[in-house]
Simulated assay, not measured.
Amino acid sequence: MGISIWQLLIILLIVVMLFGTKRLRGLGSDLGGAISGFRKSMNDGEKTEPVKQELK
C-alpha cells in the first residue's frame, strides 16, 4: 500500500504546473543557502570555547 513511482511523478508534475520551474529553482537555492548558513553557524559555535562564569 505504498506510493508507487507513477503516483510520485504525477504529484511532481502537478507541483511543477502550479509553481513553475523558476519559482521551484529559486525555492531550492534559498533552502540550500539557509541550510549551509545554519551548518556554518553551528561549526563556528563549536570552534569558540564557551565563557566560564564564576558564581559569587
Rank of each mutant, 00 (worst) to 15 (best):
M1D: 09
M1Y: 04
M1K: 02
M1R: 04
M1G: 11
G2D: 07
G2Q: 04
I3P: 00
I3M: 14
S4V: 01
S4K: 02
I5K: 14
I5C: 02
I5A: 04
I5W: 05
I5T: 05
W6P: 00
W6D: 09
Q7Y: 01
Q7W: 00
Q7D: 03
L8N: 02
L9Q: 11
L9R: 07
I10C: 03
I10V: 15
I10N: 08
I11S: 13
L12K: 08
L13M: 08
I14K: 00
V15A: 05
V16R: 08
V16F: 05
V16M: 06
M17Q: 04
M17G: 09
L18H: 06
L18F: 13
F19T: 01
F19D: 02
F19N: 08
F19V: 07
F19M: 13
F19Y: 11
G20K: 01
G20T: 01
T21S: 07
K22V: 11
K22S: 03
R23S: 07
R23Q: 04
L24T: 00
L24A: 01
L24I: 12
R25A: 09
R25H: 02
R25I: 10
L27N: 03
L27Y: 12
L27T: 09
L27Q: 07
L27V: 03
G28F: 08
G28P: 00
S29W: 06
D30E: 03
D30S: 10
L31E: 08
G32D: 10
G32T: 03
G32L: 13
G33W: 06
G33F: 12
G33T: 08
A34N: 11
A34T: 10
S36P: 13
S36E: 07
S36L: 02
G37D: 13
G37I: 03
G37C: 07
G37Y: 02
F38M: 14
F38W: 15
F38A: 15
R39E: 05
R39N: 14
R39P: 00
R39S: 05
R39T: 15
K40V: 10
K40L: 13
S41L: 15
S41W: 13
S41Y: 10
M42D: 08
M42Q: 10
M42H: 07
N43D: 12
N43A: 08
N43S: 15
N43Q: 06
D44T: 04
D44Y: 02
D44E: 09
G45M: 14
G45Q: 05
G45F: 10
G45H: 02
E46D: 11
E46A: 14
K47Y: 02
T48F: 07
T48A: 09
T48D: 12
T48M: 13
E49H: 11
E49M: 15
E49I: 07
E49A: 06
E49W: 05
P50L: 15
P50F: 05
P50H: 04
P50G: 04
P50Q: 15
V51M: 05
V51R: 10
K52A: 10
Q53G: 15
Q53I: 14
Q53L: 05
Q53H: 05
Q53P: 01
E54R: 09
L55M: 06
L55A: 12
K56M: 05
K56G: 08
